[in-house]
Design a protein around this nucleic acid. Structure first.
Lengths: 203, 203
DNA sequence: ATATAGTTTAACTATTTGGTTAACAAAATT
DNA sequence: AATTTTGTTAACCAAATAGTTAAACTATAT
């Protein structure tokens, strides 16, 4: 089947490109290396994706479309605030174990290319904070949590969950543990982080 | 003066190299661009630093030696735990405003080159967590704070302080504010973050 | 004044790298 | 069965890029 063969090749390329781009970034990635990993000729990369830039954009969009639903779990989920924080924290660790380089990749390339954000924003499913804001102010009015700006709380949640992965090599060195122990620490954070946040805001 | 002239050129190169490497990373930086920024011929870069790799290492070490004392403020300062958290948080924001690309640069290059950590570890002034551990367990024993592992608390402090800068483009988009408003949010974090942490752990 | 050591440049080289071309192979279409 | 379309490759090209060389220049010491 032609269709199947094509789809396989195209998927193979995207898979290989993801690995290389996410590990080395746009600037550090080499088309030849991607071709090798996909076990095809370099010209085929250009046949399917025209240029390094376009291949990169395909990888980037695909990465972001995996990350966005994760973020939406904090922002646009209907569950109760505390429950939401607990679920997100628990899920996020599992997510990053499946896609270890992904969050770092997205953040890194956004830093080097802040105008990308505009492109992402216009797309559907781009996470919005509005609902979360309402939920936080409701919880404050109902006396469930102490006054805090929703933006600050959101940044705290995201920071506590994402940074331990992005800063892994640095944190491992500072905390002075090996990979195995660090993984245990991360595993513990599945519950630890949520309780840390809830402790801070609950009345 | 010969000496002064040499030192100026060498310093000019390092200054230019810092800017370029910290913004674009090892892979994205171009020797020509560094030479242009330092207003010298490209051959002079090699005269003073032999290779891109060596120039990069000079920049990296210099960057880390600025970051290390900041981290030591949480780890090896003598002040009281709460006071320490407040001071660190306050200082860190000012530090990053002075060196916007620095923390991201260090973390990014460590991710792409985890073996760098070994080189850094052996150097003096490499931050150690031991003192902080004692301080936390003392505070727990004295009933000042709830039980928490020092490692987890440390990771939380660092995450809450560093990530808002590293994730700036992403967070700005998610929180849906412009640069000016985001800067205000960061400014507020100077006190906000410390209180968030202390609220969570104090009894 | 002159030798000497250090500094700087223009021009060059070798290699890497993204991208192209032309020929070939395999399917799909007629 | 013939032809068109799609997929794949080896060989090639031009631009970019790290690094080199040799000569010129500058300042200091002799």
């Amino acid at each position: 089947m032609d269709k199947i063969k094509t789809e396989n090749t195209e998927t193979e390329i995207l898979k290989a490109a993801k690995e290389i781009f996410q590990q080395k970034g746009m600037a550090g990635a080499r088309m030849q290396e991607i071709a090798d990993k996909a076990k095809i000729n370099k010209a085929l990369l250009h046949y399917y994706y025209r240029s390094k830039q376009l291949l990169f954009e395909a990888v980037f969009k695909s990465a972001f479309s995996l990350l966005a639903p994760q973020l939406n779990k904090v922002l646009n989920d209907d569950s109760d605030l505390f429950e939401k924080i607990r679920k997100f924290t628990e899920n996020y660790v599992s997510f990053v174990i499946k896609h270890p380089y992904l969050p770092n990749f997205v953040i890194q390339e956004l830093n080097k290319n802040p105008e990308f954000v505009q492109k992402l924003r216009s797309e559907k499913n781009f996470p919005s904070i509005e609902k979360f804001k309402l939920q936080v102010s409701d919880a404050i009015n109902q006396g469930i949590i102490k006054p805090i700006e929703a933006e600050q709380l959101f940044i705290n949640i995201i920071s506590l969950n994402i940074f331990p992965f992005i800063g892994e090599p640095l944190l491992m060195a500072l905390v002075n543990v090996d990979k195995e122990s660090y993984n245990k620490i991360l595993e513990n954070r599945k519950t630890e982080v949520a309780e840390f946040i809830i402790n801070s805001i609950k009345i």
